[in-house]
């Protein structure tokens, strides 16, 4: 049994873990790369690249290659999920009360903080019941992107999954990255048979897999308020599932499928996941 290098740190609003055997770069460097992406993609800093993009709807703006890639992945996720995974939920999320980091929300109720980081949304009208299709709100061209007036995006879970997938590419062929529960494993791990990962109450050996869990129980505030906005209603999702874990080929795919499953509920989730997921656990 080989010993893997590991590193734990806080980023992306959650705990992250990196594991690698013979990493291609020091894990500190991979962590710093993740921190850098967090700074650019967080919606809670008005100076982040994402916030500055959200602040100028109606204009074609230059975007970095990473943001362009994520916006394109968001459009793909929207189509793949039948419209359920919709990054344009930010106005609805803010309207529901998630207008600051969850740590701040837990210590001061919505409305008490004098300056919300979402000043860019001050001019956004109250989100209509049900969101417009994402392709109608977001256009992406090489090096540029544009939001329709009134729209704003939150990359949230998609970013975590995508970053986990890129992190293992940086670390090497025998590595694992866990970004706030969205994880990707490559290679045989310490035993040579796969990385042992907790999933659905059991431990699985993952060697070229991604996993993600979506749920409503953790990021909650007030009655019926949580962070999973249903784009069909523009409000926190009403679902009989509290949690959906999905195993897929990549962390991003797993994230999209997990969110889709939660929004569909227990009756429809299995048929949506069958043939697309390598495994799932619904609770």
């Amino acid at each position: 049994m080989k010993v893997a290098a590991s590193l734990r740190f806080e980023a992306l609003g959650a705990e992250c873990e990196l594991w690698a055997l013979a990493p291609a770069e020091p894990l500190d460097a991979t962590a710093e790369w993740i921190h850098g992406l967090h700074r650019r993609l967080t919606r809670f800093d008005p100076e982040s690249e994402l916030s500055r993009f959200n602040a100028r709807p109606g204009e074609w703006l230059e975007v970095s290659s990473e943001l362009e890639t994520l916006l394109r992945e968001a459009l793909t996720a929207y189509e793949a999920s039948g419209g359920l995974v919709h990054v344009g939920i930010l106005p609805a999320l803010v309207e529901a009360g998630y207008d600051r980091t969850f740590r701040e929300l837990a210590t001061s109720p919505a409305g008490d903080v004098p300056q919300s980081p979402h000043a860019c949304l001050d001019e956004v009208s109250r989100p209509p019941r049900g969101l417009e299709p994402l392709p109608a709100l977001l256009q992406v061209r090489p090096g540029r992107a544009r939001l329709e007036r009134g729209a704003a995006v939150d990359l949230g879970g998609l970013a975590k999954g995508w970053i986990a997938d890129r992190a293992v590419e940086r670390m090497g062929s025998n590595s694992l990255a866990n970004c706030g529960g969205d994880l990707r494993a490559l290679g045989g791990g310490p035993s040579g048979e796969g990385w042992p990962v907790a999933f659905g109450g059991r431990t699985l050996l993952l060697d070229d897999h991604g996993a993600a869990t979506s749920g409503t129980a953790k990021r909650r505030w007030g009655e019926g308020k949580h962070h999973l906005i249903d784009p069909r209603t523009g409000a926190p999702a009403v679902t009989d599932l509290s949690e959906a874990s999905v195993l897929a080929r990549t962390a991003l795919d797993a994230e999209v499928l997990a969110k889709t499953a939660i929004l569909l509920g227990s009756a429809l989730a299995p048929s949506a996941l069958g043939g697309r997921a390598l495994g799932w656990a619904l609770a």
């Binding site: 866990n178 048979e193 059991r202 869990t213 979506s214």
Partner: peptide, 14 residues
Amino acid sequence: VRATELPAITGTHV
């Protein structure tokens, strides 16, 4: 996908 008796080093979670 194989299960194992080995202890998990990490896991997916909300």
